[in-house]
């Protein structure tokens, strides 16, 4: 007992200052991409040729588009094409699927604010039931990390709970494999109304590198990444309930 107390005193207080302070991101962190407006068709083709994900990068009459819902943020496109850059913007969570698509020429990004009263009512208590559905477990691991004392998500009233009966939202990760479809549908059905669906990671949002099964409802929060950085996830959850 005393030894544990001494060790605690020696190690000191370790919970990060984020938020409200800025998160401590690695120097090579790849956040929200930016595409220059003068990107050419050849540039896009070159970038597509090294892109691991089918359909992440596209081009139409409006210009080039990068779908963060598919992107795994590997940065290969930026390596071969100077017109694409990955910024340090980690606030990637959005409430509508179409907001995940970054268009060429867009600058000065501001993340969307929550206006839905049902989501705002969860400001001081958001209980999540996580369903891992066919992914690689990286999203699950970095969701778990938020419960450690380094992030201490509990101080904002956000928790992962053991049963869908206790949940305000179902937090899906993974591309919804065939064998997890029934379990996911049942888990969502078991949550009491009103309930929300949150899709975290490229797999849950679009399938990412894989083909995705069916989501039981339209998500109200999309957290892109492969996997999303814990700062991205925590910021998205707080903004979802209007705390930020």
């Amino acid at each position: 007992m005393l030894k544990a107390l001494f060790e605690r005193l020696r190690q000191g207080f370790k919970t990060g200052a984020f938020p409200p302070a800025a998160p401590n991101l690695p120097p090579d962190f790849r956040g929200r991409p930016e595409i220059d407006s003068d990107i050419t068709a050849e540039d896009v083709e070159r970038a597509q040729s090294v892109c691991p994900v089918v359909g992440a990068l596209s081009r139409d009459v409006e210009g080039a588009k990068l779908d963060m819902g598919r992107c795994i943020f590997c940065g290969r496109c930026a390596e071969v094409c100077g017109k694409i850059r990955f910024t340090k913007e980690y606030r990637l969570g959005v409430f509508r699927r179409e907001d995940l698509v970054v268009k060429s020429g867009e600058h000065g990004y501001e993340p969307p604010k929550q206006t839905d009263p049902a989501a705002l009512s969860l400001k001081r208590s958001l209980q999540l039931r996580e369903v891992s559905a066919g992914g690689c477990a990286a999203c699950e691991l970095d969701a778990n990390v938020l419960g450690t004392l380094a992030w201490d998500m509990g101080r904002f009233g956000i928790r992962f709970v053991a049963s869908p009966r206790h949940a305000d939202a179902i937090y899906v990760t993974g591309p919804v494999s065939k064998n997890m479809q029934l379990a996911l549908d049942k888990t969502f059905a078991a949550a009491p109304e009103p309930k929300f669906l949150i899709a975290a990671g490229a797999c849950a949002i679009s399938g990412g590198l894989y083909e995705r099964g069916n989501l039981p409802a339209t998500p109200v929060l999309y957290i892109p990444g492969c996997p999303p950085h814990p700062a991205t996830t925590l910021e998205a959850l707080l903004r979802f309930t209007g705390s930020l």
Binding site: C51, C74, C136, A137, A138
Partner: peptide
Amino acid sequence: GNRSRQIALAETCAGDTS
């Protein structure tokens, strides 16, 4: 033929062993 896709797939076989 698309090695960046192949290696990304290999990395997502088990996230903790990427």
